[in-house]
Amino acid sequence: MVRVVLADDEAVIRAGVRAILAADPGIEVVAEAGDGRALVELVRAHRPDVALVDIRMPVLDGLAAAEESRRAAPETAILVMTTFGEDEYIARALGSGAAGFLLKTGDPREFLIGVRAVAEGAAYLSPRVAARLIRSLGPAGLVRTAEARERVARLSPRERDVLSLLGAGLTNAEIAARLHLAEGSVKTYVSTLLTRLGLRNRVEAALLAREAHLTPPVS
């Protein structure tokens, strides 16, 4: 069972998201918060698998709440909900340890896919949010395809395979099965990739893979 704490200051949004998540019998919303401070306390109390967090909330904004929640319960994955026009917040959320980004007005199925993905240790990026993130990172980031491809070209073929599958949102276990590797080996590859490429987390790795247009290897 994937246990979720849901945080949004609008009760109608929480009700809608809760109804979407209820469609999956393997997902349970264990608590709800209407502000960032309440979210942190609920994460500390429940130690959920996933905290589904709105960026803009009263008392303590979603990004600050995400950072505090990560410190209170490092095992809890942060999945951020956003709307159009919040690109600056999305870029900042990368540094808060967020494992994924969803668009509130996107396909409801993305909530189920995203919660499952981050609970299993993968990064999840709504396709439309991913495109905006790439644009918002600016010339010094991962914006231009040519630059991304140049960085990726320095990797070994196996490292590129792992990176491409990170970009596709696969977990370590799924990557291991796809590439016929031990899961421990995949963890080592991921750690090495983040260090070699100067990336902070799996989300940035997924963004780089997408910007470089890496295609997952055929199994």
Rank of each mutant, 00 (worst) to 15 (best):
G97L: 00
A99V: 03
V143G: 04
R154K: 14
P139K: 03
R144E: 14
A131G: 06
L125Q: 13
F101H: 02
L103E: 10
R128I: 13
L142F: 13
P108L: 07
L103V: 11
V152S: 00
R151M: 13
V118S: 06
P139M: 05
F101D: 04
S126I: 09
L112R: 04
A146N: 07
P139G: 12
A122Y: 07
K104I: 04
R149C: 06
L103T: 03
L125R: 10
P139I: 06
A117I: 06
V118H: 05
A123R: 12
A99H: 08
V129I: 15
Y124L: 10
F111Q: 10
A119N: 01
V115T: 15
F101T: 04
R132M: 08
A123C: 08
R149T: 00
T145Y: 00
A123E: 12
T105L: 01
R135I: 09
R116G: 07
P127A: 09
A153H: 12
E110H: 15
R116A: 10
F111I: 11
G97H: 00
F111C: 11
A140K: 14
L125T: 08
A117L: 07
A123H: 07
G100V: 01
L142I: 14
A131M: 01
L112Y: 12
S136T: 15
R135C: 02
A140E: 15
G121R: 12
V152T: 04
E147H: 06
S126W: 08
L103A: 10
A99W: 02
R109L: 15
V143W: 13
G114T: 03
E110K: 03
L102P: 04
T145K: 10
S96F: 05
A131T: 04
E120A: 15
L125W: 07
V115H: 11
G95K: 04
G106E: 08
R128F: 11
R149G: 01
L137W: 05
V143S: 09
V143I: 04
F111P: 12
A148H: 11
V129Q: 07
A123K: 09
R109F: 11
R135A: 14
G106P: 02
R135F: 06
Y124D: 01
A140N: 02
G95E: 14
G100Q: 00
E120G: 12
A131H: 03
S126N: 15
R109E: 15
A140F: 11
L112A: 04
T105G: 06
A140W: 10
E120W: 03
A99G: 01
V143Y: 15
P127M: 10
F101E: 08
I134S: 02
G106L: 05
K104T: 05
G141M: 01
R154E: 15
F111A: 11
S96V: 13
G95V: 09
Y124P: 08
A148V: 08
R154C: 10
A148Y: 03
G114M: 14
R135P: 00
R144H: 14
L142H: 09
F111N: 12
A99S: 15
D107E: 13
S136W: 05
L125S: 13
I134H: 02
F101W: 02
G95H: 13
G97M: 00
L102S: 09
D107F: 04
E147D: 14
E150G: 14
P127L: 11
L102C: 07
